[in-house]
Design a protein around this nucleic acid. Structure first.
Lengths: 195, 195
DNA sequence: GTCTATAGACGGATAGAC
DNA sequence: GTCTATCCGTCTATAGAC
């Protein structure tokens, strides 16, 4: 069995820990513990904690792009594509209730720390924003596509924050249904097969 | 000029710093700096950081109750009262863009830390939830008053998260208008004088 | 003399950097 | 593995009110 390169293992572990415990609350020792390397070995791969953060954000950008590409491949219908975005709330409900949204919590933490990588983290929101905007445009909403995209992301973020606070799965499902209904009003007439 | 009691000054400073920098990121030295007392003096008033956190949450609960009481005093109309809640997004747009929502960010941070005072912090959401629920009931929505209350809080939280990430004032105003419109659909027929 | 507020030094632990 | 910085928490000392 071929092991993954150490650097990649570090980024994966950091990615998970930054999500579960937060960036600041995660120490080198925590990451080294998971990867099972010494702290000394650490600095061979990353010179500073900020450097790990940058690598984690890059990895998340890459995986987000892949996910968006998968949604595009899965359907040609813009409404169905946008529904894929809403579906994430349901599919990831367990970690969301435990830890919130990975993008939202990271951006909030970095904003508060006034961290230099803030902008890069916000770019994650930007990816969804642009992608959703394009799909809303294809739904014939060229004039307010950005407004709709931002609105949908904000609604999802709100659901994540409240689900995290109250650990309420029924709430997530209910809000997801509301979002499907909200989306439906922007769709040209067609049978709603979803769920 | 009579000075405020030191304890009160500490709680006020901690309240502000916990909001602006976060609970974990705020050190005793930071608070002592603001209040202009020594760190040693600190422990005369509070035995631990958690004790300050509890005092801060208590203070926020008290000030929230006062705010809700003011909204009740300002109008007898449940729709107008609920609008007072939405108004906060506009009135506090500047700190929200800078630091997010004080309740949301605290609850998210404590949830992530697995902090013991998590429950008390969530009670802040609970205050708004119960209050909004009662007003929705008075609007004749006894059956789904809690759903509507939670939905409205979630929407606000989403706006706060995104406004914080993108520093977008126009977005806040737009979303507030959408919320006023959303609320209007639950109101019995009457002229909409608001804004 | 006692009680309370304040100040400052010290120790243990942890984390980041090298 | 070590070095340094930071931070929490404790301990002791001082000053003034009563």
């Amino acid at each position: 069995m071929k092991e993954k390169p150490t650097r990649e293992q570090i980024v994966e572990a950091a990615d998970r820990l930054f999500y579960e415990r937060g960036f600041e609350h995660t120490s080198f020792a925590d990451i080294a513990d998971v990867v099972k390397i010494s702290r000394g070995n650490f600095y061979h791969h990353f010179k500073s904690k900020d450097e790990i953060l940058r690598a984690v954000i890059e990895a998340r950008v890459a995986s987000t792009r892949e996910m968006l590409a998968r949604w595009e491949a899965a359907s040609d219908n813009p409404a169905e594509r946008i529904r894929s975005y809403i579906d994430v709330l349901i599919a990831h409900r367990t970690p969301i209730m435990k830890y919130g949204c990975p993008v939202g919590t990271l951006c909030s933490e970095l904003a508060r720390l006034g961290h230099a990588s803030r902008t890069e983290a916000n770019a994650l929101f930007g990816l969804f924003r642009q992608w959703l905007r394009r799909e809303f445009e294809r739904l014939g909403r060229a004039r307010d596509s950005d407004t709709l995209a931002l609105h949908l992301i904000a609604r999802s973020q709100g659901v994540a924050v409240m689900a995290n606070a109250f650990h309420d799965e029924a709430f997530i499902r209910r809000e997801a249904r509301m979002l499907y209904a909200w989306l439906a009003q922007y769709c040209p007439e067609q049978e709603q097969t979803h769920e």
